[in-house]
């Protein structure tokens, strides 16, 4: 008797996964450089954060579009997981956008308490989105 089991694959398309890698890495790095700025008041750390966040928003923008499409047309994925994923990406990108403006301010105001909180929100949201996107929970289970 042969039992066949379809290979379970994560919710995210491989290209989507590659795109998501950018905001995960860049927001995380931005959080690290924000921390470095607040510890040292060395302005170059804040400049680094500005570019890291800008880069995260560019690639994250593509992820955002894909996530919204994936929520509207879930295909084989569960609507709930697609929705949760989409909500996290919206949170990541939205707080990242506000943070980009925050980081355009001068001196200490470029980060300050608001900047570091927004960096944390974007980072945590990106990491959680990655967890969900790569987990098998959202994938269709086809068992014989």
């Amino acid at each position: 008797m042969l039992k066949t089991e379809a290979t379970e694959r994560p919710m995210l398309h491989p290209l989507h996964a590659v795109l998501l890698a950018y905001p995960i890495a860049l927001f995380t790095a931005g959080l690290a450089s924000d921390i470095a700025y607040l510890r040292t008041a060395e302005i170059q750390w804040s400049n680094f954060s500005s570019w890291l966040i800008a880069g995260a928003l560019v690639m994250g923008g593509l992820v955002l579009a894909w996530a919204i499409i994936g929520f509207v047309f879930p295909g084989r994925a569960s609507r709930m997981m697609a929705g949760l994923y989409c909500a996290l990406i919206v949170l990541m990108w939205g707080s990242g956008l506000i943070n980009a403006f925050q980081h355009s301010r001068d001196g200490w105001s470029s980060v300050g308490p608001t900047g570091i909180i927004l960096s944390m929100i974007s980072t945590v949201a990106a990491l959680c989105a990655g967890f969900i996107g790569f987990s098998r929970r959202g994938s269709p289970r086809t068992r014989a």
């Binding site: 929520f71 989409c86 919206v90 939205g94 707080s95």
Partner: peptide
């Protein structure tokens, strides 16, 4: 899901 961008 539009809340945050709209608010921004």
């Amino acid at each position: 899901r539009l809340g945050l961008p709209a608010a921004t």
